[in-house]
Every structure is written in structure tokens, then in C-alpha cells.
Design a protein around this nucleic acid. Structure first.
Lengths: 212, 212
DNA sequence: TAGATTGTTAATCGATTAACAATC
DNA sequence: TAGATTGTTAATCGATTAACAATC
């Protein structure tokens, strides 16, 4: 494997490049240059070039990259090409919205089923996906070999759910709950933390108004 | 104002501190130390101390911080204490889930109304909030003085919606669409980008399995 | 050949960490 | 006084940027 160890910053920018490359077909030239991408996304061109170098080796001086080739390389690197199974715990409004979201398959995520402790939800279906009782969780995860768990329960239950997921063999947790999760070494917690985003928004407004 | 210019990294950690401080009431001592927080959250204690120093001046050697005081200072700094109005564009599944989410008020966000171009949604209500036609957007924003816009439309429409929001006086955009948004100087775009999160999750799993 | 573009090596910048002084 | 803790100043580390060499 040549594609190991990319910095987190780089990894966060790669999806934006892919997005741009896939983007509006107008002016679909066969080749793209790092400079073009950088300009469109408001980044430094050397950053883009360096990022792309860690993903692709198809860039050629004077020519640039072949768009379609670069797209494929990015998709492969980001794991969008082979789907990963996931389970979701907490089938409330947000959970159901995620279960129904049709965009995940194209990012290589396949939510197998939802789980909820509320017996009234048991057996219900969202977008063709079953909502199951919590006691079914370990069995399914083990059997199918699921490694991604999505947490959309209220904050106060998040840690308990997280522990159950890890007991069931989950290696990466996507946490939508507003709680800090403690996990053993080797488990990744990716926080989709609304509170952080809101803090950044609010801080921006504060700055805008304080300099006026 | 003493509380200007905190680094982005710091700003992203502050909500986690607040969360921890508010957290499970067990062992609610009156005082907390930076070391305690750092340990609980898996951070370096100097980082925590430095972050807190930029928000609070109530830390006392040997004693630490008064928990309740620190909570109030963090809430104030993060703008969670005085609510900001927001509009949401794109009242699909995700949009409705956000409109219905009851946790936002405690983070100082108040979604006034949803907007959608689909006439069938016009007039509908979600959690007591109206869904309105797009042509009502500028009027409402101007009249009430809304500065935050939330975008939950499909990626291909995101830029057009973003432009409309900015025309309506929006200064900060919370973007859930999978699209890069170009905005004029002085406007903040905060991306809640699922694609980025998924890339990080997938990369983690790749690393786990490649080192085995 | 000349120009555009890639990719690499060195310089700069900012954030984190380490060491230490101040203080209750 | 001694110990714990804050907060500051200096050292380290990593990422970004700048300069340049390689190449089609």
C-alpha cells in the first residue's frame, strides 16, 4: 500500500476536490490542473498539488491531471468505491432522516438497520430499513461483520450506546449526540457535533458586529 | 471586549469543556481543575488551561475554577446565552429533522421558519414552525434581521440558495449540502459535511485493517 | 525552444508541548 | 511552609507557504 498516512487536514480537503471534479459538467475539459482546483475552492495551489500527490501519481507537467482518472483515484482512496455496512442506534427524527438519506451509498456507506430502545418503534421500517430492538444489536453486528456505528440518541445515553457498539465489534463510531465519548485505544470517534458548528457561527457573527 | 480572537482549534474545544462541566451531576464538586477536564476528555492539560484562560479569568491557583461560574463564562463566550434567529432552506427529511430538533435553543439557535421551493410543502408546519415559499425569504430575513441561514437542499441547488440567502442579509451560512459554496468576503460558511466525516471513518477502518 | 505545470526542498508560520515562575 | 494549581515564556513539532528544479 502506497497510500498510507495522509494528514488529517489533507483528508478533510480531499472530498472537496472530488466534489469539485464531479461538479457541474459545464466546460468539462478532459484535464484539470491543481491551480484550477485551488482557485475554485479558495485554497493555495501548492496545498492542492501536495494533497493530490499523496493520492494520485497521474499528474503530468504542463498537462495536469486527467479528470476522470483523478476522480477514480480519489473515490478509491476515500473508500467511496466499496461500501461499508453500518448500524444506527437511536431511530428518532434525526436517526430516521439519516436512515432515509439516499446520498450515503455514493459515499460508500450502507446503513443496514436502525436500533431503538423504544418498543413502539420495533419492527417499523424507514426507507426499507428495519428498526430493531437493542438486544438484536450484537448478533447482527457480529454475524454480518459491521464495523461502523452511528449514534443518534440523546446525549445522556450516548456513552452507554457507544459501549454496546464497541462490545458488538464496532471499530468506528459516528457520533451525532452532544456528548464526549470515551473509547478504548484503536476505536475512532468521529463527532458530528452541532454544538461546535454553532459556536463557530456565533463567533463569526460576534466578530462581524464587534468590528462595526 | 477582552474576549476577541480565539484560535479555531480552541473554539472547537470549548463546547466539549462546557459539555463536560454540565455533564452527569455525580460528584458535583464546586470546583474543577483544568487537569480534571483534560483527563476526562483525553487532552493535554496545558491546552485546556490555555483555552480556559482566554474565556475566563476566574481560575485560582491551588483551587481551580468554580464550576458554575466557568459554565456561565463558556455559555456567554459561545453565544449560547442569547438566541440568534435563523432560517432554514430545504424542508426535506433532514431539514425537517433540524426544524424539529429541540436541542438548538439551548445552543442559542432559534429556527424561525423553513423555506422550500416545493409548493406542496407550502403552509405545512413542522414542530410549530411554518414552511414558506421561497419568495417570502428576503422579506422575512430583512424584517426580522436574521443573520444565520441553514442550507439543507440537494447539492446542485446549494449555491443558488446560498446566493439568495446572502442577498437577504445572511452573514453566516450553515451548509449541510454536499457542495462547495463560494461567498463574498466577510460571509462565513460552516460546512457540516457528511462526506468529510465518512472519509475520516473509512480511512480509519482502512488503517486498522492494513496494520493487521 | 518556451511556457505551463508538476513535484520537491527550504523557509515561515502557528499550534502544541515542555519548563518554570507565580500564587493561594 | 508545602503542595497543588494557574498562567506565562521558551522549545518543539507539524502544516503551510515560498522558491526552485524537473518535465512534457
Amino acid at each position: 500500500m502506497s497510500d498510507r498516512c495522509v494528514s488529517k487536514q489533507t483528508l478533510q480537503r480531499l472530498p472537496a476536490y472530488l466534489n469539485y471534479l464531479r461538479g457541474p459538467g459545464k466546460g468539462l475539459k478532459k484535464h484539470v490542473s491543481a491551480t484550477m482546483i485551488a482557485e475554485a475552492l479558495g485554497l493555495n495551489d501548492v496545498v492542492v498539488r501536495k494533497d493530490l500527490a499523496s493520492v494520485s501519481s497521474s499528474g503530468r507537467p504542463k498537462v495536469g491531471y486527467v479528470r476522470s482518472e483523478l476522480i477514480r483515484e480519489l473515490e478509491k482512496f476515500l473508500g467511496y468505491d466499496n461500501s461499508q455496512d453500518a448500524v444506527l442506534v437511536g431511530a428518532g427524527k434525526l436517526g430516521q432522516a439519516l436512515m432515509a438519506y439516499s446520498g450515503f451509498p455514493q459515499y460508500g456507506l450502507n446503513i443496514l438497520a436502525g436500533f431503538d430502545s423504544d418498543p413502539r418503534l420495533e419492527g417499523a421500517e424507514v426507507a426499507g430499513k428495519k428498526i430493531l430492538a437493542m438486544d438484536k444489536l450484537p448478533g447482527l453486528c457480529r454475524r454480518v461483520g459491521v464495523h461502523i456505528g452511528i449514534i443518534t440518541v440523546p446525549g445522556e445515553h450516548a456513552q452507554a450506546v457507544c459501549d454496546q457498539l464497541i462490545d458488538s465489534g464496532i471499530l468506528a463510531v459516528w457520533n451525532f449526540a452532544n456528548a464526549h465519548l470515551s473509547v478504548p485505544e484503536g476505536i475512532l470517534v468521529q463527532n458530528e457535533n452541532m454544538a461546535v458548528s454553532l459556536a463557530l457561527l456565533s463567533n463569526h457573527l460576534k466578530e462581524v458586529f464587534s468590528t462595526k
